[in-house]
Computed example of a mutant assay.
Amino acid sequence: MSYASNKTAILIKDIYKLAYQTPVTSFKDKVFYTLKPILEIDAGTWITRGETDAHFYESDAYTFCLPDGFIQEPIHFNSVSEQIQNIYSIIYNNPGRTFDILDILTESEWYNSELYQLYCKKYQLSHSLMTTQIEPHNQVVNLVTYARHDADKIFTSEEKQLSEWVQPCLVDGLKINLLNQFQHQNKDAFYGVFDTFGHIIEAEDSLISLLQQSTLLQGAHCELIRDNPDCLIDHQGLMIQSKSHEGLILVEVMKSPLSKQLSSRQLDICHHLIAGKSNKEIAKALKLAPNTVNNHLKRIFNILNVTSRHQAIGYLMRQDILQ
């Protein structure tokens, strides 16, 4: 078995193990510490997001052994920012392929570039490997970069091949890690992970359905989550809690308690509905016109997302509306 095959087999086993056992907030960190001795890397980044046209920001990325502010620093140098965008456009247009910076620039061009002189040199980033993977169903991009300080220690062709082979495993491991977190949470809540631009990375079908019903989701994008990455929001009968972490927004969605979704009059009608009363009986008991009761019931059905009287009664009974 070749060097790359041996290393890949070891990594795949370790990464999948981490995917199942590691909290989502530390998965990328654990992966990089696993990769560090195998690829002999000194630093790196892992960016997961659905937006490819905007600048990179600190909140977009996981960084390994790099200081705060590293990701955003190029914004202050137009020439550096432009060179980064040119390099990444090549990488984006070749998903699944690992590039050494010296595949894109000659050694002389690289060390004399403003990108190196004004930015990478400051952090002793002499050599780097870069790989992207783009998900076909939602166009989410995972961009992983490995770097070395030693200018004399160029990445070998075997190490480059290993990086290329392991990239799909990293992305699959991240998916498993995200989905695995959903299974250990509140059974009454629905979960998803978004990037900082509000694009869905992974989400349960029920969460997507709830956001669509509330017209919060446009395609695979949610502006409310983008604009509120760390908060608790009560919106149109949904309790939405979000927490940002290294380029990801972890989202928990629950339906608000019925006591908050329904008016006091609608709650009165629900109590009579559960008791098995007809619309006429409810109208008489509450001294309302029958049409008024009918209109209230239509709104109640809409809030409960049911289409029949029997479904409404079953839903209300499960929610302990009589308590």
Rank of each mutant, 00 (worst) to 15 (best):
K7S: 13
T52Y: 12
S244E: 11
H272Q: 09
L174F: 10
K187A: 09
N291W: 07
N294C: 10
K36H: 12
L35P: 03
R265K: 12
A283M: 10
C231N: 15
F99G: 00
H149L: 09
P168W: 05
K153M: 14
W110F: 14
Q72E: 14
Y315C: 09
D195L: 00
D60Y: 02
N138E: 05
F301A: 09
Y88Q: 12
Q323H: 11
G44V: 05
E159T: 02
L316C: 02
N112P: 10
V166K: 01
C120E: 13
N186S: 08
Y92K: 13
D29P: 08
L316S: 03
A289G: 12
V251N: 02
K30E: 14
T196M: 03
Q266T: 09
G173F: 05
Y116L: 03
F64M: 00
Q236I: 06
H272R: 03
E114I: 08
E246Q: 13
D195M: 02
D150I: 05
L18K: 01
D53H: 15
E73L: 12
S126D: 06
M317H: 11
T8L: 15
I208Q: 05
K36M: 08
Y33N: 10
L248K: 06
Q181R: 04
P23L: 01
H199N: 15
T22E: 04
E164C: 04
N186G: 02
A43P: 08
I200K: 00
F194P: 06
V140S: 04
C222L: 02
Y111C: 00
G237H: 03
Y88P: 07
Y116R: 01
F56A: 01
Q218L: 13
I87D: 13
C222F: 06
N93W: 03
D53A: 14
F190A: 06
Q83H: 09
A220H: 13
L304P: 05
R97L: 10
I75G: 06
H271I: 11
L35D: 04
S263V: 06
K260T: 15
H149C: 06
T132H: 01
T45L: 07
I12N: 14
K175A: 11
L286P: 10
D234Q: 15
S259P: 07
S163N: 10
K277A: 04
T131L: 02
S126K: 03
I101G: 01
Q241H: 13
L267H: 12
K243T: 14
L210Y: 12
Y16P: 10
K284V: 08
I321V: 06
I12V: 15
P23K: 01
G247P: 07
D150M: 07
S157T: 13
T98C: 10
F32R: 00
T132F: 03
Q323K: 11
G237W: 05
A43C: 08
L316D: 03
K30I: 10
T8A: 13
